[in-house]
Amino acid sequence: MAQSPSWQEIPTRLSVQEFEQFVWPHLSKGRRGPARKLSALAIFNYILRLLYLGCQWKELPIDKDRHGRPEIHYTRIYRAFRRWGADGCFDALFEGSVFKLHQDNRLDTSVIHGDGTTSAAKKGGDNLGFSGHKKVKGCKVVALCDRNCNVIAPFVSAPGNRNESPLLREALPQLTRIARAVGLDLRGSVVSLDGVYDCRRNRKAIFNRGMIPNINPNSRGRKTPKRGRKARFNPAIFKERFRTIERVFAWEDKFRRLLMRFERLSQLHYALKTLAYTMINLRHYCRS
């Protein structure tokens, strides 16, 4: 894998040029009401600051103006975040990052790695369930990335008590949709997954999309040994997941707001998670 100088430098603040190139075209612009006290760049950087620091909205450190007072109230930033999330701006921003990576030939989709991660939610909320494996109550997502640790598909969310195996069949249509939108050809790509996704329906769903499954066989899913030819499995490809998808989840933990879910509304938590995956994709172009 070709490494770039910003290989592990996930941006947490954007400059004017970076904002105008990657973010501003995907944000909704208000046409009514009074003018903003601050620019959209400053508000967006405040959202990134909250995502990185993990603090509460009311504890967000806000710079002072020339009179020594906070230059903006935190509720104005929160309302802008809610408006952009409701307008689908963060989803468009994520899709734009994948399109930019594809344009610059930074995507290596010969192998696609997928896995799930669980976020604990001790404050309650919707779309939650108790995960017996993690021993926490929360929600989980299933994400897909390429060999260069770029997230290439919108994640699929579910309560923590849901099995991850059926979630893959919900994530694959999202993968093909965004591949079609950015002009990415995934025919012949290898989809590498761990043993929790080992079932006939998942393999068939991958085959039907012109891709090749590379799933670690899970003997616990069968009462008797399977007869006939063994399913295709390459251990060398499977070993890459520890420096691809697991590294992506480690980079996600850099944003402390995602270590534990504090938002009671799931769409707000998933908007922050989408923004974090977008920043992971933009590490090739933006400096922290």
Rank of each mutant, 00 (worst) to 15 (best):
M1I: 09
A2G: 05
Q3E: 11
S6Y: 03
W7C: 02
I10F: 06
T12K: 09
V16S: 14
Q21E: 13
V23S: 01
P25I: 01
S28W: 10
K29G: 01
R31W: 02
R31D: 05
G33E: 13
A35K: 08
L38V: 04
S39K: 02
S39Y: 09
L41K: 01
I43H: 14
I43C: 15
Y46K: 00
I47E: 05
L48T: 02
L51I: 02
G54Y: 02
G54I: 01
W57F: 05
W57S: 11
W57L: 03
L60H: 09
K64G: 04
K64W: 14
H67Y: 04
G68F: 09
G68I: 00
E71I: 07
H73A: 13
R76Y: 11
I77E: 06
I77Q: 03
Y78A: 08
R79M: 10
R79A: 08
R82F: 11
R82K: 09
R83C: 01
W84Y: 06
G85A: 11
D91M: 14
E95H: 15
S97Y: 11
V98S: 12
F99D: 12
F99K: 10
K100L: 09
K100I: 02
K100Q: 15
H102E: 13
R106V: 02
L107V: 00
S110D: 15
G114A: 15
D115A: 09
S119Y: 11
A121K: 00
A121D: 06
K122S: 09
K123N: 12
G124K: 06
L128I: 01
G129I: 00
H133F: 10
K134E: 08
K134F: 03
K134M: 04
V142D: 12
V142R: 05
D146H: 14
N150T: 01
N150W: 03
V151K: 03
P154C: 12
P154K: 01
V156N: 03
S157D: 08
G160P: 01
G160D: 00
G160L: 00
E164K: 02
L167T: 00
E170H: 15
A171N: 04
Q174M: 12
Q174A: 15
T176I: 08
R180Q: 15
A181H: 08
L184D: 10
D185L: 07
L186E: 04
R187L: 02
S189G: 14
S189N: 12
S192G: 04
V196L: 05
C199H: 14
R201Q: 13
N202K: 06
I212C: 13
N216V: 07
N216D: 14
N216C: 15
P217A: 05
K223Y: 10
T224Q: 15
T224N: 13
G228M: 15
G228C: 05
A236C: 15
E240F: 12
R243F: 06
R247N: 14
V248I: 06
A250M: 05
A250K: 02
E252Y: 10
E252M: 11
R257A: 08
M260R: 14
E263I: 01
E263W: 11
S266H: 15
Q267N: 13
Q267L: 04
L268E: 07
L268I: 10
L268N: 11
K273N: 08
T274I: 05
L275A: 13
A276K: 00
Y277H: 07
T278L: 06
I280W: 07
L282H: 01
L282W: 06
H284E: 12
H284Y: 13
C286W: 03
C286V: 13
